[in-house]
Design a protein around this nucleic acid. Structure first.
Lengths: 339, 339
DNA sequence: TTGTACGCGTTATCAA
DNA sequence: TTGATAACGCGTACAA
C-alpha cells in the first residue's frame, strides 16, 4: 500500500512535509505543496486512518448501539440523521444492533472499546425508558429516542409526543369535532402515556368532559408479540349510538385497521368519520386513501441533533446531562373534515 | 490507555507472549496463559484494532455502500443480515449511504479506502440494475439486490422475483381463480418485469389466455416522486362486468389501496375478491384485515449470503463472478379464498 | 520553511 | 516455549 513515505520519496521531500500538506498546515511553499500534491495524485495515495488514530489516540469515530432501530421501518431515519451529520463533520460511524439481547450489548461495548470509539449514541426503536448496559466503560454516551431510568445521568434527546398529540387534538377540536375516539398505543411505549395525557388534557382544557371521549386499548404485550385489538376496538367504537365523529389512532399503522373497520361498516372517510394517525410513517400515511393526517415524529432531527450533542459531550463543551425534546410536526392531509 | 506492554509487565512476560495468548496461538504454557489472562482482566485490557490493522494490513472490515437502503422500511433487513454475519465472524461493518448522489458515492469509496476496507457490499433499496461508481478502486465488491449493467463483472446476489410471483400465481390458480387482475409495480424496478413475466407465463402454462387477465399499471415515475394509480386501477378493475375474483398487487404497500378500493365498492375480502401482495412487508401485511397473503422477499438472507460471498471473494476462494438468486417464500395468511 | 528521530500498539521474524 | 527487536503509517518535538 502506498504510504506517506513513498509520496515523500517521489516528491523529493521529507515525510513530515507530506504530512503538512495533507493536513493543510502552514509553512509550506506553494511550489513544494504542488509537488507533493501531484505525487499524491500520481500514486493514488489515501491516508491510513488506523495509523492516524494510533498516533493521535482519537478515532474520530462514533458508535451507534441500537436495539432494533436499523432493522425496523420506523426509526431508520434516526440513523440517517446521524450518518448525515457524521458525513458533514468528518466522523466515522460504527453501527451495531443488540437485537434486544443484553449479552450482545456487552459484546458491542467491547467492540467499540477495541475501536477506541470517541462516543456512543444509544438508540432505540420505540420511544422508551431503558437501562443501558454500558459495560461500565467510561465512553461518553447520548441517548436517542429513549431515556435512562432515574439514577443514571446520561444526556438524552427525545421526540415531543405530548406536543404532537396536543396539536392533533386541537386540530380536530378546531374543526368542530366534539365526540372523539382514541385508540391507545401499547402501554409499554413511552409515547402511549404521553400522547394519551395530551389528548385528555387538551380535551379537558377545551371544556369537554370524559363522556365526550371513547378511549380503547389498541395493542398490548411485549414488542414483537403484541396482541392486536385495533380492528375490534374501532368497530365497536363506531357502532355506539353516540359514535365519535373523529378517531385518533395511536399511530399510523393502527390507522390502517381503523380505516378498514370504518369502511366495513359503510362509513366514508372523512365525511362520516375523520381519522388521524401519529408518526407520519409515510409508507402507510401516503398509501391510505384518503391520505392520512398525522404528526411526524422528528426522527431525522433526533439523529442529527443527537450526534451534534454527543460531539459537544466528547469535546467537553456540554456540561450537565441535559434532556432535550424535539417537536413533532403536524402533517395535514385529507383524512379529516370540518363539521 | 492500557496496552499490550502494560499487560506484559504485570504478567511478567514479553509482549509477544501476551500477543500469543490474545490470538490463541500455540506454544504457551497453561500456567503462562493464565497469568497473562489474569493480567488482562485486572487491567481491563482491550486490543486496539487500529494498531492491529497497521501491522497486519488487514482491517477485517467490510463496507456497506447503499443508496437509501438503511433509510427505508423495505430493505433494512439486508443490513441486519450483513451485520449478523459480521458479528458472528468477527468482522466490523462500516456503513455509508449515497442518498442517490454519485459525488457522495465517490467520497464514500475514498472513505473506505482510507479505512483499508477488505471488501465492499453494494446494496440497493429496490431490486435494480446499476452502474456502480467504484471510483476505480480495486476493492473486492459484491452487489446485493442489484446487478451491474452488462460490461462490469461483479458478483451479485438477488431475490428471485420470478419464482415468487410464479408461486403466488399458482397459489391463486390452485384455489380455483380463473379471472385474475394484476396491478403492476413501477416499471423502473427490476422486480416489475420479472414478476409480471412470471404471472403471464404461469397463467399461460395453465391454459388460460390474455382475456382472462386484467393488467393495469399501478405506479410510474422516478423513485420518491412516483405517480400513483393504484386506487383508480383497482376500482376500475373491480367495476368490470367480468370482474376478477382475485387481484395480485405489485407489492404489499399497493395492496392497501386495493383493499380500500374493494371495500369502498362494498366487496368483502376474501369472499368477493381475493388479494395477494408481494414483499411481506409485515407492517402492512399483518396490519391489513384480513391479513395479507404474500411472497416474502428474502432480504435477511440476501445480506447474510452476500456477506458470506464477499468473504469468499476477499479470501480468493470465489473465482468467477457469479450471479446468485435467493428464493422468495410464500407466506399464507387469510386474504385468499378458494372458489 | 524543512527535515530527523522517535513513539503509538500491534504482529512478525528469528534467535534463545 | 519464550523473548528481543524490527516494522507498519503517521504525527510530534525539536533541530536545522
Amino acid at each position: 500500500m502506498v504510504s506517506i513515505v513513498s509520496v515523500a520519496k517521489v516528491a523529493g521531500v521529507s515525510n513530515k512535509t507530506v504530512s503538512r500538506v495533507i493536513n493543510g498546515e502552514p509553512y509550506v511553499t506553494e511550489e513544494t505543496r504542488e509537488r507533493v500534491e501531484r505525487a499524491i495524485r500520481d500514486l493514488g495515495y489515501v491516508p491510513n486512518m488506523a495509523a492516524r488514530q494510533i498516533r493521535s489516540s482519537r478515532s474520530n469515530t462514533f458508535g451507534i448501539i441500537a436495539d432494533y432501530v436499523s432493522t425496523t421501518p420506523y426509526s431508520v431515519d434516526i440513523v440517517r440523521g446521524i450518518q448525515d451529520w457524521a458525513n458533514a463533520n468528518g466522523k466515522t460511524i460504527l453501527m451495531a444492533n443488540t437485537g434486544g439481547a443484553s449479552e450482545q450489548e456487552i459484546k458491542i461495548w467491547k467492540l467499540f472499546q477495541s475501536h477506541r470509539i470517541d462516543g456512543v449514541l444509544y438508540v432505540t426503536m420505540y420511544h422508551r425508558i431503558v437501562d443501558p448496559e454500558t459495560g461500565d466503560v467510561g465512553i461518553p454516551t447520548v441517548m436517542i429516542n429513549c431515556r435512562p431510568r432515574t439514577g443514571e445521568l446520561l444526556p438524552s434527546i427525545e421526540p415531543d409526543d405530548y406536543q404532537g398529540a396536543q396539536d392533533l387534538t386541537r386540530y380536530l377540536l378546531e374543526r368542530g369535532h366534539r365526540k372523539i375516539g382514541y385508540i391507545r398505543l401499547n402501554p409499554i411505549l413511552l409515547g402511549a402515556e404521553l400522547r394519551l395525557d395530551a389528548f385528555r388534557k387538551t380535551i379537558g382544557d377545551f371544556g369537554l368532559g370524559e363522556n365526550d371521549l371513547t378511549i380503547r386499548l389498541g395493542m398490548e404485550g411485549p414488542v414483537g408479540a403484541e396482541k392486536n385489538y385495533v380492528f375490534a376496538a374501532a368497530t365497536e367504537m363506531l357502532q355506539q349510538k353516540d359514535r365519535p365523529t373523529a378517531i385518533m389512532s395511536g399511530n399510523d399503522e393502527m390507522a390502517i385497521q381503523v380505516y378498514i373497520a370504518a369502511m366495513a361498516l359503510g362509513f366514508r372517510i372523512p365525511e362520516d368519520v375523520s381519522i388521524v394517525g401519529f408518526d407520519d410513517f409515510r409508507t402507510v400515511s401516503q398509501a391510505l386513501k384518503p391520505e392520512l393526517t398525522t404528526a411526524a415524529l422528528p426522527y431525522y432531527n433526533l439523529g442529527l441533533e443527537g450526534a451534534e450533542l454527543l460531539n459537544s459531550v466528547v469535546a467537553g463543551t456540554e456540561v450537565c446531562p441535559s434532556r432535550r425534546v424535539v417537536s413533532c410536526k403536524l402533517v395535514e392531509r385529507t383524512s379529516v373534515c370540518s363539521l
